[in-house]
Simulated assay, not measured.
Amino acid sequence: MEITFERFEPAQAQELVEFLSGDTWPFHGTAAVDPAQARQWIEEGRYDDEDHRSFWIRRGGERAGLVRLTDLRDPTPLFDLRIRSRHRGRGLGTAAVAWLTAYVFDGFPAVRRIEAATRQDNAAMRRALLRNGYVKEAHHRDAWPTPDGGVRDAVGYAILRRDWLAGTTTVPDWDDEPAAGAG
């Protein structure tokens, strides 16, 4: 089934409110979005302004998800990805990460790298990132609050423009710590 991406238009604000509040998002800071909160986010420009762009993910003509790009004026933008629960586990995340990576690197020449953060237990997102050449660069212990009042570790990934162009990955030098007792 064909997957397409359609730019969010401000005239679709009510549809976005319904999308955000009509499902649960277990790996986001707010798992259940209240419609009033969604409206506020839209009014604040989080989905469409100079620094943000959002795209509906369409599968079979249905809005199956949303990609939101942030910090587009920065050389290191980030993204948020939401897939409706009934469409999860079908490869949409991997396809969306591939699409957004090409979109950003092709359309924003000043971007050097794209970053992503997720909870450690979000295995599907982590696999989607790895399949698209993103490299784990950070592990933050007890950094992601959960809706039940707990915390989880957060992990950070990124892809470098040069790696994307070459089809390679460059892993961080994890052995660069100075000795604890050294002067």
Score class of each variant (00 low, 15 high):
Ile3Phe: 06
Thr4Gln: 11
Phe5Ala: 09
Phe5Val: 09
Glu6Ser: 12
Glu6Asn: 08
Arg7Ala: 15
Arg7Cys: 13
Phe8Trp: 12
Pro10Cys: 07
Pro10Asp: 06
Ala11Leu: 07
Ala11Asn: 01
Ala11Cys: 01
Ala11Thr: 10
Ala11Gln: 09
Gln12Ala: 10
Gln12Asp: 11
Gln12His: 09
Gln12Asn: 06
Ala13Gly: 14
Ala13Gln: 12
Leu16His: 07
Val17Lys: 04
Val17Thr: 09
Glu18Trp: 08
Phe19Tyr: 14
Phe19Val: 08
Phe19His: 09
Phe19Asn: 10
Leu20His: 04
Ser21Ile: 06
Ser21Arg: 08
Gly22Asn: 03
Asp23Leu: 01
Thr24Ser: 13
Thr24Ile: 09
Thr24Gly: 08
Thr24Val: 12
Thr24His: 10
Thr24Phe: 07
Trp25Gln: 13
Pro26Ile: 11
Pro26Ala: 12
Pro26Gln: 11
Phe27Cys: 01
Gly29Thr: 11
Thr30Glu: 09
Ala31Gly: 14
Ala32Leu: 00
Ala32Lys: 01
Ala32His: 00
Ala32Gly: 00
Val33Gly: 04
Val33Arg: 02
Asp34His: 13
Pro35Ser: 03
Ala36Thr: 10
Ala36Gln: 14
Ala38Gln: 03
Ala38Thr: 02
Arg39Leu: 13
Gln40Ile: 11
Trp41Met: 07
Ile42Gln: 04
Ile42Phe: 04
Ile42Val: 04
Glu43Cys: 03
Glu43Tyr: 02
Glu43Lys: 11
Glu44Trp: 11
Gly45Tyr: 00
Arg46Trp: 05
Arg46Leu: 11
Asp48Leu: 05
Asp49Asn: 05
Asp49Phe: 00
Glu50Trp: 02
Glu50Ala: 10
Asp51Asn: 10
Asp51Glu: 12
Asp51Phe: 01
His52Asp: 04
His52Asn: 13
His52Lys: 07
Arg53His: 12
Arg53Tyr: 06
Arg53Ala: 15
Phe55His: 03
Trp56Phe: 08
Trp56Gly: 03
Trp56Cys: 05
Trp56Pro: 04
Ile57Thr: 05
Ile57Gly: 02
Ile57Asn: 02
Ile57Phe: 01
Ile57Val: 14
Arg58Trp: 03
Arg58Val: 10
Arg59Ser: 15
Gly61Lys: 10
Glu62Asn: 14
Glu62Cys: 13
Arg63Thr: 09
Arg63Glu: 10
Ala64Leu: 07
Val67Arg: 01
Val67Gly: 01
Asp71Trp: 06
Asp71Pro: 03
Leu72Phe: 01
Leu72Trp: 00
Arg73Gly: 15
Arg73Thr: 15
Arg73Tyr: 11
Asp74Thr: 06
Asp74Glu: 08
Pro75Met: 10
Pro77Asp: 03
Pro77Thr: 03
Leu78Glu: 14
Leu78Ala: 12
Phe79Arg: 02
Phe79Met: 08
Asp80Met: 07
Asp80Val: 08
Asp80Tyr: 04
Leu81Ser: 06
Arg82Ala: 11
Arg82Cys: 08
Arg82Gln: 14
Ile83Val: 14
Ile83Met: 10
Ile83Trp: 08
Arg84Trp: 12
Arg84Ile: 13
Arg84Ala: 15
Ser85Pro: 07
Ser85Asp: 14
Arg88His: 03
Arg88Pro: 01
Arg88Glu: 05
Arg88Lys: 02
Gly89Ala: 00
Gly89Thr: 00
Arg90Asp: 11
Arg90Ile: 02
Gly91Leu: 03
